[in-house]
Amino acid sequence: MANWVPLWLHRLSSPQTFYRFAGAVRPWALGLALVLGAVALYGGLFLAPADYQQGDAYRIIFIHVPSAWMSLFIYGVMTVSAFIGLVWRIKLAETVAMESAPIGAAFTLITLVTGSLWGKPMWGTWWTWDARLTSELVLLFIYLGVIGLYHAFEDRRQGARTASFLALIGAVNVPIVHFSVNWWNTLHQGATIRLLGPSHMDSSMIWPLLLMMVATKCYYVASLFARVRADLIAAESGKAWVRDLALGTQERA
C-alpha cells in the first residue's frame, strides 16, 4: 500500500514544513492565476461575441460567476477545515479555515458589487430582495462574523475554535444560495453552466468562463498560502524555527 501518502500529509501538517511548502507553491499558483486569468479575460472581453439580448453588458459574467462560485467553494473549504480543526485539534486546519474567510469575503463582495453593476442596466435596479441576492448577502455577513469572532479573542486558538463553530452553523446557507434560483421564483436567472446535460451557452463564451474558474482557484491557493504563512509567523513566534527566520532574514524577509 502507498502509506507514504498519510506520512506525507502528516509531515505537511507541521507548521514549519507547511510554511516552506506554501512559500514554494505560492509564486507558481499566482503566476498561473495571472496567465490563465489574462487569457480568459481576453477571450471573454474581445473574442467572445456580444449577447443577442444583453449586448456587451453580459461580459460581466466572466468575473461575476467565477467569483460567485469561489464564494461558495471557499466556504466549503473553510467548513471542512473548521470541522477537522474542531474534531482533531489540528492547528494548521484551524489556520486554513480562519485565513480562508477574508478571501471568501472578498469574492462575495465582488459577486455582490458586480451583480449590482449588471443588474442596473439589465433589470433596471441596483438591488432587489430576491432569494439569490439576499442569501448571497447573508453569506457575506457570515464571513464577516467569522472574521470578527476570530479576532475578538485574546487567545487566537480559542478564537479560531469559536469562529470555526460559527462557520459550521453558517454552512446551512451554502445550499440555500446554490438552490435559491430553483426553490424560489427569482429575478436572478437560473444556472447557465450544467455539469450534467447541455449548457445554455455557446462554446465561445464557455471556455473563457471555465478558464476564469480555474484562474480564480489558483488565485485562492496563492492568497491562502500567503495568509497562512503570515499567520504561522505570529502563532509560532515562540518556536525556534520562527526565531531563526526572524533573525536570519534581513530586509528581504
Binding site: I60, H64, A106, L117, W118
Partner: peptide
C-alpha cells in the same frame, strides 16, 4: 458598467493579495 465591474474585481483582489 462593464469596466467598473472589472475595476472592482481587480482592486479588491489586489488589496487581498
Amino acid at each position: 458598467y462593464v469596466w467598473t465591474a472589472f475595476a472592482v474585481f481587480f482592486i479588491v483582489l489586489l488589496i487581498d493579495s
